[in-house]
Nucleic acid binder design. Structure first.
Length: 150
DNA sequence: GCCAACGTTGGC
DNA sequence: GCCAACGTTGGC
């Protein structure tokens, strides 16, 4: 079991949207390192949802991988902002797993709180300059966060 | 809206 | 393969 954190801008797609949809393809990621992580996700892995570009930013809930990654349809859609002219059906470039809503935290764990929490110092999320929108965290870090949320 | 910290692109 | 220019992310 691997534990993950994914970022999303709530103006674009929030935890409430995921709750409403039940599940959704985690598409539109256009960064190779993030894509590689998306491709590593296994069914049943747990995924923390983080609201970026929010006020305040923070972790807002929990999802689960429902389906391993398959080609992101947006890369073939000429009208999409995420269209990639270099991607072909035979050789897709971008992939998205499907995520399933599990729960929204009663109150979000904002970035300040996370920064002040012992044991989370090494989280990728909190590393200076880290912009990676999909990454792993340790079971220890995950457990601390779930404890904080309950 | 600013800007630091990256990541990507493309000329050479 | 280098690196300058440009684009993006995301906190503030």
């Amino acid at each position: 079991m691997t534990y993950w954190l994914v970022k999303t801008e709530p103006d674009v797609y929030s935890i409430e949207d995921l709750k409403r949809d039940g599940k959704t393809p985690w598409d539109a990621v256009r960064n190779y390192q993030a894509r590689n992580f998306l491709m590593e996700m296994k069914k049943g892995d747990l995924v923390l949802i983080y609201h970026s570009n929010a006020n305040p930013p923070g972790i807002v809930g929990l999802a689960e991988v429902a389906k391993t990654a398959y080609p992101d349809a947006l890369q073939f859609d000429k009208d999409s902002d995420y269209y990639d002219p270099k991607a072909t059906i035979e050789k897709p470039r971008w992939f998205s797993p499907e995520l399933k809503f599990k729960r929204a935290f009663r109150s979000m764990l904002d970035l300040d709180t996370l920064r002040q929490t012992k044991g989370l110092e090494k989280m990728t999320l909190l590393q200076r300059g880290s912009r990676l929108s999909v990454h792993q965290l340790s079971k220890k870090e995950f457990d601390i966060i779930i404890d904080l949320a309950s």
